[in-house]
């Protein structure tokens, strides 16, 4: 179903709120619950006003227990509801991990398709907000590694609306990761539920020299880097993945076969991070088109740092430009690739 509103300036948090309201209005089976989502409207106000509008039976506060929230959502979905639950912060979703991986992800398969779990688990994630410990994790790789889950993350308000509406309509369980540092980013757009499929990546900037691949909170940074690269003479293409699982191989390979160079950017730790999967897929699928190794610009392999130091950890435009410069433009391999010492350090 397509819901078209007038074009207006909207924040990502506002777009998500509208998506929830429209989904609640469109389908009596939709219920929204979690910690502080009722009266307070959520710590990020994404559920603001929904309990008052739709009543406490459809939008409600639960006891404080994340496994309980996901576990009971599973039971509710078995009984025909479409739960949209909120985990208050990325790192506080971990208590629900067993319910997510052992049941949410597997029940359809375990029942040979007889039980469908159309559940959305909304998780505000990532840093860049000066948050304290346990409030800034990028946990996407844990979920994307789990077969049976869809993992979706928007980078703009209009996408946030559309992807959340489509995730709620989707018969599969969706881990919906909301980049909290973009909650207050604004866009003038029409909010529409229709459009490209849920698992379709977007080419958000066309270019010919190199493909910059990102998602969620670092898409804006990547676009800034692409603009800066243009001043240096590089015409970069930028892809916003939007769906991390399943991944849109077609858009990726089509782009990289054309440009011959790629950099993956995310703020999660690089080791066994989501970018490693993309780099591997591109070298498997585009090897003969590649002019240079696929590079990654990621957070360091450290626990998310304190506010005073997070600027060093997050991918910056400079770091993206630096990676871009190392893509063997003059056919000279980067010195770092020849230094075997690093591999044994």
């Amino acid at each position: 179903m397509t819901s078209t509103l007038d074009a207006a300036t909207v924040t990502m948090a506002g777009a998500l709120n509208t998506a929830l309201a429209d989904a609640l209005a469109a389908d009596q089976g939709v219920v929204v619950f979690g910690e502080d989502v009722g009266t307070l409207g959520g710590v990020f106000r994404v559920t603001d006003g929904l309990a008052a509008r739709f009543g406490q039976d459809r939008v409600f506060d639960t006891p404080l227990a994340e496994a309980g929230i996901v576990g009971t959502a599973i039971g509710m979905a078995m009984n025909g509801l479409r739960p949209v639950v909120e985990m208050q912060f990325d790192a506080f979703a971990y208590p629900a991990f067993e319910q997510v991986t052992s049941h949410l992800a597997k029940l359809r398969n375990r029942t040979r398709g007889a039980v469908s779990l159309p559940i959305v688990v909304r998780i505000p994630y990532g840093g860049g907000i000066g948050g304290v410990e346990h409030h800034c994790d990028s946990s996407e790789a844990y979920y994307a590694h789990t077969p049976g889950l869809r993992v979706v993350t928007p980078a703009s308000p209009a996408d946030a609306y559309r992807l959340l509406r489509q995730s709620i309509d989707c018969p599969d369980p969706v881990i919906f990761l909301e980049p909290k540092r973009r909650y207050w980013s604004k866009e003038t757009a029409q909010l529409e539920a229709g459009g490209p499929a849920l698992d379709q990546a977007a080419v958000v900037k066309r270019g010919t020299d190199v493909t910059l691949i990102s998602y969620g909170g670092t898409v804006a940074t990547t676009l800034e880097a692409a603009a800066a690269a243009a001043e240096e003479g590089w015409d970069a293409e930028v892809i916003d993945l939007r769906s991390l699982s399943p991944v849109d191989d077609r858009t990726l390979t089509e782009s990289v076969r054309r440009t011959g160079r790629a950099v993956v950017i995310h703020e999660a730790a690089g080791f066994c991070g989501y970018g490693a999967e993309i780099a591997a897929r591109l070298s498997e699928r585009c090897f003969h088109s590649l002019q240079a190794p696929v590079l990654r610009v990621t957070g360091f392999d450290i626990p998310y740092p304190a506010p005073a130091l997070e600027g060093h950890h997050l991918p910056s435009t400079d770091r993206i430009l630096d990676a871009l410069a190392r893509l063997q433009w003059d056919d000279e391999p980067d010195e770092r690739w020849l230094d075997s010492g690093g591999a044994h350090a």
């Binding site: 496994a67 309980g68 996901v70 576990g71 009971t72 959502a73 599973i74 039971g75 509710m76 979905a77 078995m78 009984n79 025909g80 509801l81 067993e98 319910q99 052992s102 049941h103």
Partner: peptide, 12 residues
């Protein structure tokens, strides 16, 4: 883990 599923189904 099934205890929570039962509660959810019953609440629904």
């Amino acid at each position: 883990t099934n205890t929570l599923h039962a509660v959810g189904l019953a609440h629904a």
